[in-house]
Design a protein around this nucleic acid. Structure first.
Length: 265
DNA sequence: AACGTGCCCAACCGCAGTTGG
DNA sequence: ACCAACTGCGGTTGGGCACGT
């Protein structure tokens, strides 16, 4: 039994949006706010699927969207964020005000990938293309009599551990990434000292529901759950500022970026 | 001018995660 | 605990456009 379709496809428009549809959607969201995407098309008098409305609003109609070309700074920020986050476009977009995940994804695939390749850097691993592949240790749970095991099932039972870098996507068990953890702010055993970035009680919105959270100040690396990475600029509260390393990671020290924007939309 | 090719990007699709009944 | 509904995400597609021949 499959999931029921999100909408009645026989009675919904597809393809490019018209000006009138845009106007209806904008007017409805201005009046009622975002959310309830499934019922929105009917309420707004649109012959569109709710997902389509949401996408149109988020990627194109939202008033806070930044239009125009990406700057060199944005390019470099995207590259750095991608090296940390991989293809987590929504997380990357959260660090680029006014940019959408779709926009960044497209930009990555059309511009930055090529740019990195021209630099001789593998856009997936962020390593030099001619550098030897990191050692891969494979732990197989396949039985000795694996000849009877379906190949696909066997592949599911393989854990790939890389010493560093991202999974290439072609590795076996690509959905298991032991290198990177995206986790809620972690601070109980780890003091964070960015006093110039006060962080307070926040409301997170997920799935249209509000969740109250209490958070504290932390650096970007730690916010990503990679406290022990070399990028962490707040370890033990004794580390000197990132400027001491000559590396203002992602502009945090300069206060250009605000951790708050990383919160879930 | 006509055609072919490649690029860009808006939109779609399918799946995963979350929530509430 | 289970399941359906809903939302959000990432990968992919395809129409339109620019450019070269």
């Amino acid at each position: 039994m499959g999931r029921s379709p999100c909408c009645d496809k026989a009675h919904t428009n597809k393809g490019a949006w018209t000006k009138e549809e845009d106007d209806r959607l904008i007017a409805y969201i201005r009046a009622h706010g975002e959310g309830c995407w499934r019922s929105l098309p009917k309420s707004a008098g649109l012959l569109r699927c709710g997902k389509s409305c949401r996408l149109r609003w988020i990627n194109y109609l939202r008033p806070d969207l930044k239009r125009g070309n990406f700057t060199e700074d944005e390019d470099e920020l995207i590259i750095k964020l991608h090296s940390l986050l991989g293809n987590k476009w929504s997380l990357i977009a959260a660090r680029l005000p006014g940019r959408t995940d779709n926009e960044i994804k497209n930009y990555w695939n059309t511009h930055i990938r090529r740019k990195l390749l021209n630099r001789g850097i593998d856009p997936m691993t962020h390593r030099p293309i001619n550098e030897p592949q990191p050692e891969v240790k494979t732990i197989s749970f396949a039985t000795a009599n694996s000849s009877v095991v379906d190949q696909k099932e066997e592949e599911k039972a393989v854990v790939v551990v890389t010493s560093s870098g991202f999974s290439s996507g072609k590795e076996r068990c690509p959905d298991l990434n032991l290198e990177l953890r995206i986790s809620p702010p972690y601070q109980t055993q780890h003091q964070h000292q960015h006093q110039n970035q006060p962080y307070d009680h926040q409301i997170l919105k997920t799935g249209g529901r509000n969740i109250a959270t209490t958070t504290t100040t932390l650096c970007f690396s730690c916010s990503l759950g990679i406290q022990n990475s070399g990028e962490c600029s707040c370890t033990n509260g004794t580390s000197s500022s990132s400027s001491s390393t000559g590396y203002d990671f992602l502009g945090l020290e300069s206060g250009v970026l605000d951790y708050r924007s990383l919160e879930m939309k």
